[in-house]
Amino acid sequence: MGMPNRKYADGEVVMGRWPGSVLYYEVQVTSYDDASHLYTVKYKDGTELALKESDIRLQS
């Protein structure tokens, strides 16, 4: 078993793309699913969504 190939840690605050949009919002990573390679993130309004790594970026 190798290390999970994840870029962002639980609790890390990053920018997540809103689905169907080009806009990124501040989100907190809450979990990562090794099987689906999706991150569960929480937006400031409390919305929780699963995002692909390509829809997440570090805060500038």
Rank of each mutant, 00 (worst) to 15 (best):
L49Y: 15
A9S: 10
M1N: 15
Y32I: 00
R57S: 08
L23I: 13
L38C: 08
G46V: 03
P4N: 13
D34M: 08
V27R: 00
E26R: 09
S60K: 10
S54P: 05
S54F: 08
Y32P: 00
V13P: 03
G20V: 02
H37Y: 10
S21I: 03
G16Q: 02
K44P: 11
M1H: 14
D10F: 04
A50I: 14
D55I: 01
D10L: 09
A35F: 11
P4D: 12
V29G: 00
N5K: 07
L49G: 08
P4I: 12
S54D: 12
G2I: 08
P19K: 06
Y8I: 03
Q59W: 14
T40L: 13
S54R: 08
V22P: 11
P19E: 05
V29S: 00
P19H: 06
Y32Q: 00
E26S: 09
H37M: 15
Y43S: 10
T47W: 07
D55K: 02
L49E: 03
I56P: 02
E48S: 11
G2Q: 09
A50F: 15
L49A: 09
T47R: 11
V14M: 02
Q28A: 07
V41A: 05
S21L: 04
V13Q: 07
S54H: 10
M15W: 15
V14W: 01
L51F: 02
L51Y: 02
T47E: 04
G20S: 05
S36V: 07
S54W: 08
M1S: 15
T30D: 05
K44R: 11
K42L: 12
K42Y: 07
Y24W: 15
V22L: 14
S31I: 02
Y8A: 02
Y24M: 06
V13H: 09
V14E: 00
S54N: 10
Y25S: 07
V41E: 01
K42N: 04
G2A: 07
Q59L: 15
G16W: 04
K42T: 10
E48N: 07
R6W: 03
S54M: 09
Y25T: 08
T30Q: 13
S21A: 07
E12S: 10
D10V: 12
Y32N: 00
I56C: 02
Y39W: 02
S60Y: 11
G2D: 14
Y8S: 01
Q59N: 13
Y8N: 01
D10Y: 05
Q59K: 15
S54C: 10
W18T: 06
V22M: 14
R17V: 04
D10C: 06
D10Q: 07
D33E: 04
T30H: 08
Y39K: 00
V41Y: 01
K7I: 10
P19C: 06
S60V: 12
A35H: 11
G20Y: 07
V27H: 01
D45V: 03
